[in-house]
Design a protein around this nucleic acid. Structure first.
Length: 586
RNA sequence: GCGCCCGUAGCUCAGCUGGAUAGAGCAGCUGACUUCUAAUCAGCAGGUCGCAGGUUCGAAUCCUGCCGGGCGUACCA
């Protein structure tokens, strides 16, 4: 806030200069070393070349014209030509007033023009509970969406459901294996894991009770009603026949084939509900679940193919229809329609992305796992062939998590049932710690996640360090009340008493928050939030030990309580971006 | 072979989109609780930012080439 104001002022002065100036690489940054003041301007070094004059000389000249702002208490020249500014305490006091006034809104802003962003992430196959490998993408994607919302961009989270391929059938076969008493061979390509037998048991006691095998019931309306009711049945928010409305308890007679189809539908819905619950427990709620099957049901695939054909980048070879993706930087051309006439997953995926464009998002982001980086060039190429603007689709890769157990990598195989569920991670280390941990790291670096370490030493997780800072602030505020200071009195404090280095240094940290939020969103680097919060917490813990807040000096006490209130607000707002709880006590 | 990502302290990682003396946590060492929560703080020690060039007033950051690690290279989804 202060930084932006100072920047605005300095740029105004610089633009008024008689010389030709290029301000593109001029920046106002907060300093690392307090000896360098609060903010630093690099303009003199940038101009040295443009103006062909020594930087220190330019700095001297510029500095003189910067002394007029009430925000600036002192201007100094240092090093190769940095112009350092010391910010007036009054400016920091005003910042605090602003933080207290804005509360939860501090660090957020509204956009000049409304924008709709779409973020697609997780999009795991609906064949098992959400895997811990998806957890990082879930945390990163959701935090990114929250960051966009904070800077005034409407962000919609979407989960792409791959319900068309034969994986769901493989899952169904596995469920049937358990339903049929585990007789015979376990199905080829089947899915193992306790969840499969759990679903089978659920189906047996619930859904299947609504079906009787035999001749198809002539009352097709009842069958259609049952089909419709499946999502509600799974969600458990209606009785078996509410919404379907035939006579209570009476089962529908169906053929074996229909029964299989209905059960497939039920298994799919059950799996999606399971995934939705896991993700919500992790603080992630998708506004949209887009089904691949809906593309095949309509004309999207054909329309997309036609669109690509129009671009001239489609050709026929060996009876198949290909997209010339090599034209767009891919290593090889890709098949759109197989020689047997079936569309490939790739074509469906293009059709899917085409619907995003049609759904009028201003921009879309895909968050993919590292095993999909080969898809980037061909997907971007296809969108370009369809006439989509270059920048419209952005594809981010979130690197995989290498799980370690006993210091050894854990092999993850869903088919073998040999994976760690997100739910299990939540139970072991908690949502707060897991989310903080996953977002703490740059998305495109490999991450080693030692399960034993996360479980046994969860108290050493940095999330507690930040949460403890928040709890401590609350504790001091409670203590002040116990010491006879009426609640809320600090909101009317005279902030002019905040003049000491420790107070101002804490305020300087609070000032960095809005910039940090914006940078994190624009650079797609959500780890900047945890990093900032750790620094703020550290600053506060130090302050706490050094400065006794509640003393006999009532005016100063009130002013410092206001400072703590501001610190609490920023900690809360930052943690909310991560969907991490800010406890009042620990 | 080709393509993408990564390489910073013993370990796990930051490093504010090119700035001043590269920082935390853990592990090691020394101190601080009759004082607002010690899940904390103050301090010591620990570095050829993979290597070599280049661009720049200035490089961990940008470019090139090597070295090392991961992943990908289907008429699968």
């Amino acid at each position: 806030m202060i930084r932006q104001q100072v920047e605005e002022f300095l740029f105004q002065v610089l633009r008024a200069r008689p010389e030709e100036t290029d301000l593109s690489s001029v920046s106002v940054d907060s300093t690392r070393d307090p000896a360098h003041g609060d903010l630093a301007l690099n303009a003199a070094m940038v101009f040295a070349k443009q103006w062909k004059r020594p930087p220190r000389e330019i700095a001297e000249e510029l500095a003189a014209s910067f002394r007029t702002s009430p925000l600036i208490a002192a201007v100094e020249i240092a090093g190769p030509g940095f112009i350092n500014f010391r910010i007036a305490p009054a400016a920091y006091q005003e910042l605090l007033r602003e933080i207290l006034a804005q509360g939860p809104a501090f660090g957020t802003r509204t956009a000049k023009e409304p924008r709709r962003e779409q973020i697609e992430f997780v999009s795991a196959n609906p064949t098992g509970p959400v895997n811990v490998v998806s957890a990082r993408a879930a945390a990163v994607g959701d935090t990114l969406a929250r960051l966009f919302e904070a800077i005034g961009i409407e962000a919609e989270r979407e989960f792409y459901v791959n319900d068309h391929g034969n994986q769901v059938d493989h899952l169904l076969d596995s469920v049937l294996y358990y339903l049929n008493g585990e007789k015979g061979e376990f199905p080829e390509n089947g899915y193992r894991g306790d969840y499969v037998s759990e679903i089978a048991a659920e189906a047996r006691s619930g859904f299947l009770a609504l079906l009787v095998e035999g001749e198809e019931d002539p009352d097709t309306a009842r069958l259609a009603a049952l089909r419709e009711a499946i999502p509600a049945l799974v969600a458990g928010d209606s009785g078996p026949w509410e919404g379907a409305s035939p006579e209570a308890g009476s089962a529908v007679s169906v053929t074996a084939a229909t029964r299989r189809g209905l059960l497939r539908q039920w298994v799919l819905e059950r799996m999606l509900a399971w995934q939705r619950n896991d993700l919500e427990a992790f603080g992630v709620r998708f506004q949209s679940w887009f089904r691949e099957s809906s593309l095949h049901a309509g004309s999207d695939i054909d329309d997309t193919y036609a669109g690509l054909e129009k671009s001239g980048d489609v050709f026929e070879n060996d009876g198949a229809h290909w997209f010339r993706s090599t034209k767009y930087g891919d290593e090889a051309d890709r098949v759109l329609v197989r020689s047997n006439g079936q569309p490939t997953y790739f074509l469906a995926d293009i059709a899917y992305h085409r619907t995003k464009a049609e759904r009028k998002y201003d921009h879309a982001i895909d968050i993919l796992g590292p095993d999909h980086h080969g898809h980037i060039a061909r997907m971007l190429g296809a969108m370009r062939a369809l006439g989509c603007p270059d920048e419209w689709l952005e594809i981010m890769i979130v690197q995989q998590v290498n799980l370690l157990k006993d210091g050894k990598p854990v092999k993850m195989s869903k088919r073998a049932g040999d994976f760690i569920a997100l739910r299990e991670l939540i139970d072991e280390v908690g949502t707060d710690a897991a989310r903080f941990f996953f977002v703490m790291l740059k998305p495109n670096t490999h991450l080693n996640f030692d399960l034993d370490l996360a479980k046994s030493r969860s108290l050493e997780n940095p999330v507690y360090y930040v949460q403890y800072a928040h709890a401590r602030v609350c504790s001091v505020l409670r203590h002040a009340e116990a010491a006879g200071i009426e609640p809320g009195a600090h909101r009317k404090a005279d902030l002019a008493f905040l003049t000491e280095t420790d107070d101002l240094s804490l305020l300087k940290n609070l000032d960095r928050y809005p910039d940090t939020v914006e940078a994190a969103a624009l650079t797609r680097e959500p780890q900047r939030i945890p990093t900032y919060l750790k620094e703020l917490a550290s600053e506060f813990h130090g302050y706490y030990h050094k400065v006794k807040v509640v003393t006999d000096d009532r005016p100063l006490t009130l002013a410092r309580l206001a400072l703590l209130e501001g610190t609490r607000t920023v900690l809360q707002n930052g943690l909310a971006l991560l969907a991490v709880d800010a406890p009042d006590a620990m």
